[in-house]
Amino acid sequence: CHSECLGNCSQPDDPTKCVACRNFYLDGRCVETCPPPYYHFQDWRCVNFSFCQDLHHKCKNSRRQGCHQYVIHNNKCIPECPSGYTMNSSNLLCTPCLGPCPKVCHLLEGEKTIDSVTSAQELRGCTVINGSLIINIRGGNNLAAELEANLGLIEEISGYLKIRRSYALVSLSFFRKLRLIRGETLEIGNYSFYALDNQNLRQLWDWSKHNLTITQGKLFFHYNPKLCLSEIHKMEEVSGTKGRQERNDIALKTNGDQASCENELLKFSYIRTSFDKILLRWEPYWPPDFRDLLGFMLFYKEAPYQNVTEFDGQDACGSNSWTVVDIDPPLRSNDPKSQNHPGWLMRGLKPWTQYAIFVKTLVTFSDERRTYGAKSDIIYVQTDATNPSVPLDPISVSNSSSQIILKWKPPSDPNGNITHYLVFWERQAEDSELFELDYCLKGLKLPSRTWSPPFESEDSQKHNQSEYEDSAGECCSCPKTDSQILKELEESSFRKTFEDYLHNVVFVPRKT
Rank of each mutant, 00 (worst) to 15 (best):
L153A: 12
G243S: 06
G140D: 13
S321L: 07
I404L: 03
I214M: 11
F358I: 12
K409D: 11
N136S: 13
E231C: 09
N141L: 12
T309L: 15
R138T: 02
T215W: 02
T273G: 15
D249N: 03
Q199A: 10
Y285K: 02
V363G: 15
L229S: 03
S338Y: 05
T273S: 05
N211K: 13
A259I: 13
V170M: 09
I134G: 03
D292S: 06
E109P: 05
L349N: 00
N248G: 06
W205R: 01
T185P: 10
S132N: 13
L107N: 11
I379N: 10
D335V: 13
L298R: 00
E148C: 02
K360D: 04
F311Y: 15
N334V: 03
E368N: 00
A251L: 09
K177M: 05
E109W: 11
E155T: 09
E156Y: 05
T118L: 06
Y223L: 14
F174C: 13
P304R: 14
R202Q: 02
E246D: 14
R202K: 06
R369N: 14
A195T: 05
A356I: 02
L151Y: 01
D335G: 03
R369S: 07
N190C: 03
S401L: 09
G295F: 15
L180M: 11
S321Y: 15
N320L: 13
L151T: 03
Q121Y: 01
E146F: 11
G189S: 07
V128Q: 01
I134F: 13
I232C: 11
P288M: 02
D335E: 10
A316S: 12
L280T: 09
L143I: 04
E184D: 07
Q354H: 04
P336H: 05
D257P: 04
Y167P: 08
D326C: 04
I405G: 08
T383M: 02
F290Y: 09
N136A: 06
Q199S: 05
N211H: 15
I378N: 01
W344M: 02
D312K: 04
S260L: 11
V363D: 04
A120H: 08
I378S: 01
D197I: 02
E236F: 03
H222W: 05
L293D: 05
E146K: 13
L406F: 09
F268G: 00
L108R: 12
A259V: 11
S116C: 15
D377W: 15
Q339P: 12
R369E: 03
K103G: 12
D312S: 09
F365V: 07
L161D: 00
G256W: 11
R244G: 14
D315T: 13
D276R: 02
T118P: 05
P388T: 01
K177S: 12
R281T: 08
S269Q: 05
R291T: 09
S173G: 10
W344C: 11
W352I: 15
I250F: 13
K253R: 05
P410H: 14
E262N: 05
A251S: 06
N142C: 09
G318K: 07
E155K: 15
I327H: 01
P388Y: 02
G110N: 15
R291K: 08
Y285W: 06
G243M: 12
W286I: 04
G256M: 06
L298T: 02
W352F: 03
L180H: 09
N224W: 00
W282K: 00
G189E: 03
K350T: 10
W344R: 07
S119V: 05
L147T: 03
P329L: 14
S338T: 14
R138A: 12
L349V: 07
S239K: 06
A168I: 04
D249F: 05
G313V: 11
S376L: 00
N190P: 12
R369M: 11
Q314F: 09
E231G: 13
R247K: 10
Y285S: 04
G189T: 15
S260I: 14
F311I: 06
Q199P: 09
S239M: 14
N200Q: 15
S333V: 11
S376F: 00
L345W: 14
P388M: 00
G318A: 05
V359T: 08
R291P: 08
E122T: 05
P410F: 06
W352H: 14
V381I: 14
F268A: 03
F268Y: 07
P394G: 03
S158K: 04
K350W: 15
L133F: 13
I404M: 05
G125P: 02
T127R: 07
I181K: 00
T371F: 05
F296T: 03
R124P: 02
N130K: 10
N334T: 11
P288F: 04
A149S: 06
K337A: 08
Y191W: 05
N190K: 05
T361K: 02
P288W: 08
I404A: 10
L186P: 04
Y305Q: 01
N130L: 09
L280V: 14
I232F: 01
Q339M: 11
V117A: 10
L219F: 10
S116L: 05
D335L: 12
D335R: 11
H222A: 06
Q245W: 15
G159I: 00
D384S: 04
E148G: 07
D328A: 03
N198M: 03
K103Y: 04
S166T: 08
I181S: 01
V363L: 13
P288T: 08
K375A: 09
S402T: 15
Y380T: 07
T273H: 11
P342A: 12
Q245T: 11
A120G: 09
I114Y: 04
T371L: 11
G131I: 00
V363T: 09
P342M: 09
H222K: 01
E302A: 05
I271A: 04
P287Q: 05
P304K: 03
W207S: 04
G140T: 05
L108Q: 06
L293M: 07
I405N: 08
F299V: 12
S319K: 06
Y191T: 07
L345T: 10
E187P: 05
S401K: 12
P287D: 02
E231D: 07
L147E: 00
D335S: 08
F311W: 15
I135H: 15
F174E: 01
Q199N: 13
P388S: 04
D384C: 10
P288A: 10
R247G: 15
Y167H: 04
K177G: 04
I250A: 14
K218A: 14
E368T: 14
I181R: 00
M297L: 13
G343K: 09
I378V: 14
S398V: 07
S401F: 05
V397R: 07
L227E: 00
F174N: 02
F365A: 01
L298F: 13
E302S: 08
Y285L: 05
M297Q: 03
P287V: 10
E155V: 14
R291F: 05
M235K: 00
F221T: 08
T113E: 10
I357F: 03
W207Q: 06
C261F: 01
A303D: 03
K360A: 13
Q216H: 11
N399K: 12
K409S: 09
F220D: 05
L280H: 00
T113M: 03
D115K: 13
V104C: 14
I188V: 10
K360R: 10
D115S: 12
K409C: 14
D292A: 03
D115I: 05
L345K: 03
L172W: 00
V363N: 11
C105A: 01
I357Q: 00
K209F: 08
T127M: 15
